[in-house]
Design a binder for these strands. Structure first.
Lengths: 229, 229
DNA sequence: CGACCATTTGATATGGATCAAGCGATGTGG
DNA sequence: CCACATCGCTTGATCCATATCAAATGGTCG
């Protein structure tokens, strides 16, 4: 058993943010900023990283685990904005204060960086400025894709979600889902029942297999894509 | 990409690029960049500004009229990403190529700016770099709010749209809508029938008045907000 | 083993889509 | 100036995808 745990851990740190040893002159860029000035934090399951409405003081990079951003509407409906995996940076969205809250889905470690620090540093480091802009651009792209997901049918949404997760997973055919059905449902604007039924249906069509609730095996990638719009 | 579209586009950009003579010391920031290096273009009703999948070469600022961004799914469903009014900048989203297309809703004039120019200029102009980042941030905020709209009920979506438009209109109570019911429906992920019915219902509740199809008068702002989640 | 929680499965209800007219502006040719 | 076509919008009737309500199952941890 310990071997397996170790393997999982190592994997969690796999992402391509390189942390250089700081022996030389001041380095440039966002990875360097995180490495040099970032503070590591750990969060337990369902622990809050920041709350909606709080001032946006920090940028966050996931080192291990998984973070969800979400907003709860006045009547209790919850919308999940996105899932952030190791290597992902979140918290760029807010100009003044956060529109969403952020929570750890599983025990997670995160490096935080003061925005004021990054921004003042960006004034003299055009690489960093450029990377921040690219980061914001990719978050924008993500949000726009999310909008496109939300107008599709239940089946298309679930397939879209699976393809999205598969694209980010190591193995491309075996997906380990850190989030619950409720998280998925709230991300897709569906109910858990509909998500569950749709997954069962996809399994019956032998497009996927579900060895357990949190594991998805992509059996037939093109069939899956065909279910997409 | 249809050849026809490409032809139209090429033609559109054949216009002379005006570079204003620089009398004073170099100015900073995005407005200055648009003023100094931007090229004005005009587009007729439903004319394409750029097509989805095209390389993202330019930034665009609306001077007059109204632009919609949208994407057509394989089966013909259309999603409108946003409406851009005078003063708004669009086209920041794309890192490589555009996810959405853009069209003029009414005859419009737009100033275009080469991205490569803005970005290289941003390396030495931290004000500009900062403004680009803020711009991307506000677009991100817009997209995230759009996601939140799309999980609400039909009534909440329509009310949300009206409040959004009211906030941007000059008069705050009298809204002139440049876009059709179909545009609104495709922005909200509803059908024209549902949009129309909802507007009629809001009129019957005397929250709004509809002197004509394209004019909305906000009769009771707080009642309207109460219809929102 | 037993309690608890997440997930699946089943039966029914419903909001919004779809299908189908009708209506009111705007424009066009006679 | 009027008949008439056109187009965007509204209104009505019906249908269906997904929500809701309810219960069974399974997996995890003490």
């Amino acid at each position: 058993m310990p071997a397996q745990v170790l393997a999982t851990r190592t994997e969690a740190f796999r992402q391509p943010i390189q942390i250089h040893p700081v022996h030389k002159a001041p380095e440039n860029g966002l990875p360097a900023a995180f490495a040099m000035m970032g503070a590591p934090l750990t969060f337990g399951r369902n622990e809050e990283v920041f709350g909606e409405g709080e001032g946006a003081e920090y940028l966050y990079r996931v080192n291990a685990g998984c973070i969800r951003t979400y907003k709860v509407l006045s009547d209790g409906r919850r919308q999940v904005g996105g899932f952030y995996l190791p290597g992902d940076v979140f918290g760029i969205e807010a100009s003044e204060e956060h529109l969403f809250s952020a929570e750890a889905i599983v025990p997670s470690t995160v490096t935080v960086l003061k925005r004021s620090m990054v921004f003042s540093r960006a004034a003299g480091d055009s690489t960093l400025a450029r990377q921040l802009l690219e980061l914001a651009g990719s978050e924008l792209h993500r949000a726009q894709s999310h909008v496109l997901l939300l107008i599709k049918t239940a089946q298309e949404r679930v397939v879209g979600f699976l393809l999205e997760m598969a694209a980010r997973a190591r193995s491309r055919t075996e997906i380990e889902l850190p989030m619950s059905r409720q998280d998925i449902a709230d991300y897709l604007g569906l109910t858990i029942e509909t998500v569950s039924r749709t997954l069962t249906h996809l399994e019956n069509s032998s497009a996927i297999a579900l060895p357990s609730a949190r594991r998805v095996v992509v059996r037939n990638h093109s069939a899956l894509c065909r279910f997409n719009a």
